[in-house]
Amino acid sequence: MAEFGVLDFERPIYEVEQKVAELKKMMEEEGLDLSQKIEELENRADELRREIFSNLDPWQRVQVARHPRRPYTYDFVKLMITDFVEVHGDRLFADDKAILAGFGRLDGQTVCVVGHQKGRTTKENLMRNFGSPHPEGFRKALRIMRIADKFNIPILTFLDSAGAYPGIEAEERGQAEAIAKNIKEMHNLGVPIIINVIGEGGSGGALGIGVGNVVLILSNAYYSVISPEGCAAILWRDRAEAPESSRILRITARDLLKLGVVDEVVQEPLGGAHTDYEASAKALKEAILGHLKPLMKMGRRKLIEHRREHFRKMGYTSENPFDNSVFVDTRTV
């Protein structure tokens, strides 16, 4: 593990791993046999990882979802998709680099890829606006998805954005309209659409490319109507209360599964997706292929109806209540 971006609660693991690295170096340079000590420490690191990561609270998961070393859309594309060709622009205004779009092959099958793209460096983040799209990003996404629809190519979207960008130009160019239109038009596409929440599922900015036949989520990703900080600012006028709001909003993968908002939680490697990109991509790819197979057999009309029906069921009312006792263990009274 590199020092860059180590989270507070990861530090005990990081320290043991540093020690292992030192011993390995010593062994190499000085010819001492330290293999037993190394093995002990590696076991200790595994133990710590299990201890820490099997009990993450919602706020810690948000930290993992935002981890600066977390795999982003393009990392998954590189590990999952062959022959990838990126395409650009909404043919109306600009190319929004907060959205990555293109075509490639998944296990031989041509697929369309659309996803939020965060930057790894400051320079890249300025270019990609930290993965927060402007309206032209959503319009670019829809344009590309319509090409996929024309050629019967299934669509994979990757959700990883803190939210659609709240700025003057974004409003001037119709942020709300762009999102609303995408949500409606994704309900009209006659091809399989698989949504993958890989990091931050930030509200309307996520849903703007989030309407699919199946919604998958990585185990440390989150999906929320508002950022924990934004919620805390409204409820308690204090963004520092974000750990509490991240708990009461029920935004973790497991809670979303209970609420029927996602279809499957894809397990990340024990220390989080950032500790093993290959294993994360492999797990996600397998899940995608598992869901894609039956969808590929559905006709165009059936796919549209299946998708609309999927969202028709969302929500709970007096006629269709939800047993919230599943959340009672974490409730403050």
């Binding site: 509200s203 109507v225 029920r250």
Partner: peptide, 26 residues
């Protein structure tokens, strides 16, 4: 906007309403 107290379920109403609008439009 969406009602915070129903969290993600409120966000999903956006997808639910727009689905039926697509059908009505058709």
């Amino acid at each position: 906007g969406a009602r915070m107290q129903e969290g993600i379920l409120s966000l999903m109403q956006m997808a639910k309403t727009n689905a039926v609008i697509a059908a009505h439009d058709e």
